[in-house]
């Protein structure tokens, strides 16, 4: 099922709109009736496993792929009708690093400045901004191929924002970058958003999703849920979450499959997460049930779900629903 489209924040225009978007490659459905809206200045995060269709949606919104059906509207322009019209309004960072490695930092920036026809009078200043933003001051003449991952990503972002696009599409911009650099990269994204830039960013790092204003969970080309991280954690799993610590996970897991009012039970590290309808009721019920089986957990307590819990739960529910539908 599609998540409900979020109403736009008051007074702001939706910069990116997907309506019932479908993209097929032969018989394979890469994007399956996806709808969402992103308001101006909002950071929307696409969260999902590799191959879920995140890149395909982004490429379709950039006009690089033609949608099989449905509509994509970016900066008020129908992408399928006028893909060229969209280009000047967007900045794009593809999943694979796609700047020229045999050009220097400065030469890459000059190239994109020329391609986007950045006014000459402003080009120096904007290049300066991009270089400072990427932390590449003093390395202007360095061949891009010699730079480390974090710098590459920030330079790619610098090239993508050189023409001051109101909309940014960032496809897994931080994959393969060390955590400190990732943190810094997200600071940059937040700065841009605070200046009104609309950002659509995909990631498969759960912790990064927390930095987004809103998240869209994507699996098998379907948009399973959208909402702010807080809201998703609150409502996304449709129940309460208990943490159970014990010595022998195997027998415990086995026994809990048959425990009353336990909807799901899964291993998280060296403990178990239990999804229950009502935390208080189960906190009273479960120790007795386990005792009757001769099992004694070290500790059992209520926890607030992480995004990962929500994601695992929603995907499981989605798979179950799809199975029932078929």
């Amino acid at each position: 099922m599609n998540g409900p489209a979020q109403p736009a924040q008051a007074g702001k225009i939706d910069q990116v709109v997907a309506e019932d978007l479908v993209k097929r490659f032969g018989n394979f459905v890469a994007v399956d009736h996806v709808s969402f809206r992103i308001a101006s200045g909002e950071i929307m995060g696409f969260l999902g496993p590799n191959g879920a269709g995140k890149s395909t949606i982004i490429r379709t919104l950039c006009g690089l792929l033609r949608p099989s059906s449905g509509r994509a509207i970016v900066a008020g322009i129908d992408v399928a009708r006028d893909p060229e019209g969209v280009r000047q309004h967007i900045g794009y960072m593809s999943q694979k690093f796609s700047l020229y490695r045999d050009l220097t930092v400065e030469e890459n920036l000059e190239f994109f400045g020329g391609i986007y026809s950045v006014p000459r009078a402003e080009l120096r200043e904007r290049m300066r901004f991009a270089i400072d933003m990427a932390g590449l001051a003093g390395r202007e003449q360095a061949m891009v191929g010699t730079l480390a991952g974090g710098w590459l990503q920030r330079l790619a972002l610098g090239c993508a924002v050189l023409h001051r696009p109101p909309i940014l599409f960032l496809d897994e911009p931080t994959s393969g970058v060390e955590p400190a650099s990732r943190r810094r990269f997200w600071d940059l994204i937040h700065n841009l958003a605070s200046e009104g830039v609309t950002v659509l960013v995909s990631t498969h790092y759960m912790e990064e999703a927390e930095y987004c204003h809103r998240i869209a969970l994507i699996n098998h080309g379907r948009l399973i849920a959208t909402g702010s991280p807080a809201k998703l954690k609150q409502t996304g799993i449709g129940g309460d979450l208990l943490l159970l610590e014990c010595d022998a996970l195997g027998p415990m897991l086995e026994a809990l499959q048959h425990a009353p009012n336990v909807r799901d039970c899964s291993v998280f590290g060296d403990a178990l997460h239990l999804l229950v309808d009502n935390a208080e009721k189960s906190l009273a019920e479960i120790p007795d049930f386990l005792a009757s089986k001769g099992l004694h957990p070290r500790r059992i307590s209520r926890i607030s779900p992480s995004l990962e819990d929500v994601f695992v739960q929603l995907i499981a529910a989605d798979v179950a629903a799809a199975g029932k539908a078929a």
Partner: peptide, 14 residues
């Protein structure tokens, strides 16, 4: 082959 095309086609260049 070098993956630079993906970015180039996303720009306004004709």
């Amino acid at each position: 082959e070098r993956g630079t095309m993906e970015l180039l086609v996303s720009t306004p260049v004709t």
